[in-house]
Amino acid sequence: MSKTAQKRLFKELQQLLKDSPEGIVAGPRSEDNLFLWDCLISGPPDSPYQGGVFNATLEFPKDYPLSPPKLLFTPSILHPNIYPNGEVCISILHSPGDDPNMYELAEERWSPVQSVEKILLSVMSMLSEPNVESGANIDACILWRDSREEFEKQVKRSILKSLGF
């Protein structure tokens, strides 16, 4: 099982190194453990997160790609779909068996067809278009919905802070 996962992760890494999408850098933290990756995601333009660079870890299960990996923002960022502990809640990261919110379509959820690249792209699109319907951070949801300006201000502030200003 683990061998397949390793092989597949290696292939994906190769693919990513060959042509990685804009604004995304990802790779294993150390050479001897392919199951823990570090990623850098830049905030998509025309979004509150523009200009920020966010650090996230990807934790792959042993039976990858049958089960989805776990994506954790370190440190967490203010976003309706990111739990306060940094865990990302998007449908592509949920395996078809478990549906925490009961309204995700089966084809939106994890399938071996997906890949690290696709996950990170979805995260980027999530950053630019939060989905308040299935919120993970209720405060962020309310803020985003009710006073967008305040939300953007807080995000900007945290970005500046993370960049060391």
Binding site: T4, K7, R8, K11, E12, Q15, P65, P112, V113
Partner: peptide, 8 residues
């Protein structure tokens, strides 16, 4: 061409 699951 590669397998959609294992990329083999």
């Amino acid at each position: 061409a590669s397998c959609r699951i294992c990329r083999g």
